[in-house]
Write a protein that binds this DNA or RNA. Structure first.
Lengths: 241, 241
DNA sequence: TAACAAGCTGCGGGTTTACGCAAGACGGCG
DNA sequence: CGCCGTCTTGCGTAAACCCGCAGCTTGTTA
């Protein structure tokens, strides 16, 4: 007997998932649905759900937040993330919250029926991690170093994206002013903010700090959800003086 | 006899739309589908489509871009935008490209079947504009002045979001340096960047410029698609010396 | 243990931002 | 016409930012 919880905004996708679960998991006898992260968390708690399919980006409370609190309460929960996009921001967000040894998956909505069903079985039955090929690529790149970003670089990227001053960042991260600026420089370097600036004449130069954020956005290193989470963390920190 | 073109990423939504069109418009005998903006444009041209349902945010070429080129070729085309979100950025983007007197609509994906079908009939048969209540609110706010943004303020917001320096903005918009900075100040004012900054002591102050962009993002004044379009325009301008 | 790369930090200075102050310019309106 | 509000511009200043240079602390490798 197995129970599966589906957390997904869009009614169409929700019913599609429902069918997919029924088809892929005959051993599953009950499927419950939640239409956003908040009720998702609640249902997971009430039903002690061990098998969850979760959409990222939902209006009320996004999948990453929901997954975090769920995993905090029951780290052995198996969660399959089912998302439209493979932004590095999402991938980073997810891999930062998955508990040690937990089984989880990440498949794109553009994947075929087969892939989805296979992933469902692999994760829920075999407790095996299944990460979409495309997503996998990002993961490699971001954890390895090649053309990817260090955690500290990513951290400072988020900080300037939030609009903190150098001084504020220094205080927050426990660094000196100069160190913060060092990190900024290497960030600018990696994001290629210089070349796009007016190379020869100072005709159309960019504001490096602002440009870096934009470039990061355009490259999907950042997205709305990541900003939202970072902002929440920031407020938390501000309140805690 | 009527032909309807559907431009939509998601196969699920596409087939849902297909059914909705069939149900709402018995006089429609052919429905064609495109899975992104690029082929949407092409099909619209080939079939001289006069009735289009268009998703915003698609991977290859987003709905606003596609609609713009379509309307440029055939301004009397009726387009119903069908979107997940009602970000001010989208609303602004759409209302900037709709030709004078054209019939168009904007309904949210969260709307009921009834609403969608009604909108289809109103726009395609009656040539009447139908704008979702929620979206309407934004439109009012942004075109009127109450708590909304002037075009010039919005313009400069985009410019700093792109990462331009004050000087570059001045050159681009044909203003003096000081004027640019004036507009920035009133932007900061409206975005409430000050209060959130460290009120009393200079403990955790914000970089106003960067913060403004973030706040705009969080308030959905900007989004990825808007940035993308702005970036394209910028490149165009840069190339044109 | 020596050597070396990588990261942190202070110093100094050139540039860019943020913004108060004040002098025009333009467009209504009584 | 004169008054007034809005927008533009120049000047000047304090702060913030970008960054080269050089001295230190680490963890790593020979």
């Amino acid at each position: 007997m197995m129970k599966v919880l589906i957390v997904e905004d869009d009614p169409l996708h929700r019913s599609y998932l429902h069918e997919a679960v029924n088809a892929a998991l005959p051993e599953c006898d009950t499927v419950i649905e939640a239409e956003n992260g908040t009720v998702g968390e609640k249902l997971a708690r009430d039903h002690k759900s061990a098998h969850i399919v979760m959409d990222l980006q939902m209006a009320s409370r996004n999948g990453i937040e929901a997954a975090r609190t769920i995993w905090k309460e029951r780290p052995e929960t198996r969660i399959l993330f089912w998302s439209n996009y493979s932004d590095e921001a999402y991938v980073r967000g997810v891999s930062r919250i998955v508990p040690d040894g937990a089984a989880y998956g990440y498949v794109l909505k553009s994947a075929s029926d087969e892939r989805l069903k296979l992933a469902l079985r692999s994760i829920f039955i075999e407790s095996q991690c299944v990460i979409d090929r495309e997503v996998r690529g990002l993961q490699q790149k971001s954890l390895g170093q090649t053309n990817g970003f260090t955690d500290s670089e990513y951290e400072i990227l988020v900080d300037i994206a939030l609009g903190l001053t150098d001084r504020a960042i220094a205080k927050r991260r426990g660094l000196s002013l100069r160190s913060v600026q060092n990190r900024l420089q290497q960030l600018y370097d990696k994001l290629d903010v210089y070349q796009s600036a007016g190379d020869d004449h100072e005709d159309g130069r960019f504001n490096l700090r602002a440009r870096a954020v934009t470039v990061a956005f355009l490259r999907k290193l950042l997205n709305y959800s990541a900003l939202e989470r970072a902002e929440a963390e920031l407020q938390e920190w501000l309140d805690g003086k």
